[in-house]
């Protein structure tokens, strides 16, 4: 098992957001987490990645059998956890090339590998850019600076391709994308799917799941997973709306 979340409770500034989440993700699987706004989807992603503003008050997160709570943000990333951000932040003056080179080499150092020589790194970038259909000038620009919404999300997918994570969590990567950008993002994910990695896709809408077919769909509501099923659950949600879940819970 790649990821095992047991009875996870988490709060921010004393306010409880996650109220007992249970989730199991195996290698080779794609999970979709859906739910109305403000039910804790992004919080779950942030807590797995180790964002310090959230306090884990109960429960545990095991990743490849390790207690994630004991690992720093960067060590979680180096162990293969990737978070695709809903709102990727701008870092002025730092080129994507320089940013990625720093990231790739810090991960390699953690694994006891030598830094990638400049030429090899550039070849790797070219290969991944082709894979995720990114135009070459994007990587010469500063990280996310002046990027359109679509460019920011494509950049997240490109970074995911570069870092080859074991567990990729995509937090509303589809929000604000036009149909072409959506297809590029989805194609990127599909090309990176392997029997030894897994994806958790957080989304509000069903439409991304037309392109990325999930093995499991979970509904997060008021800090708990209240319903799980196969890909047909997403369609049912689309049809009946989240009010259906709300009523069922009442």
């Amino acid at each position: 098992m790649l990821l095992q979340i047991k009875n996870l409770h988490a709060s921010i500034h004393g306010k409880e957001i996650l109220r007992g989440v249970d989730l199991e993700v195996n290698k080779g699987e794609v999970h979709a987490i859906m739910g109305p706004n403000g039910t804790g989807k992004s919080t779950l992603a942030s807590v797995i990645a180790g964002r310090e503003v959230f306090d884990v008050t109960a429960g545990e997160i095991l990743y490849q059998g390790k207690d994630l709570q004991k690992l720093s943000i960067e060590d979680r990333a180096r162990e293969g956890i990737f978070l695709g951000f809903q709102y990727p932040v701008e870092i002025p003056g730092v080129s994507i090339t320089n940013f990625m080179r720093t990231a790739v080499n810090e991960v390699r150092k953690f694994k006891g590998l030598d830094p990638l020589p400049g030429g090899e790194f550039l070849r790797l970038m070219e290969e991944k850019k082709r894979l995720v259909e990114i135009t070459s000038n994007l990587t010469n620009r500063s990280v996310n600076e002046g990027f359109s919404g679509g460019e920011k999300k494509k950049n997240e997918i490109f970074q995911m391709a570069m870092l080859e994570p074991m567990l990729a969590i995509l937090d509303e990567t589809d929000s604000g994308l036009d149909i072409d950008a959506l297809r590029i993002v989805a194609n990127g994910v599909n090309k990176l799917r392997r029997p030894d990695n897994a994806f958790v896709i957080i989304t509000h809408y069903q439409r991304l799941l037309d392109y990325i077919i999930p093995d499991f769909v979970h509904v997060l509501f008021e800090g708990k997973i209240v319903k799980s099923g196969g890909k047909e659950l997403a369609l049912e949600l689309e049809e009946k709306g989240y009010d259906w879940i709300k009523k069922e819970q009442e």
Binding site: A49, V89, I91, M100
Partner: peptide, 22 residues
């Protein structure tokens, strides 16, 4: 957080951000 999530230590992240700024 963004830098650290990519495996970059806080210290290297500050170095990157400051050098980018300058």
């Amino acid at each position: 957080f963004y830098c650290q999530q990519r495996g970059i230590s806080a210290e290297s992240a500050i170095g990157l951000i400051v050098n980018g700024y300058a």
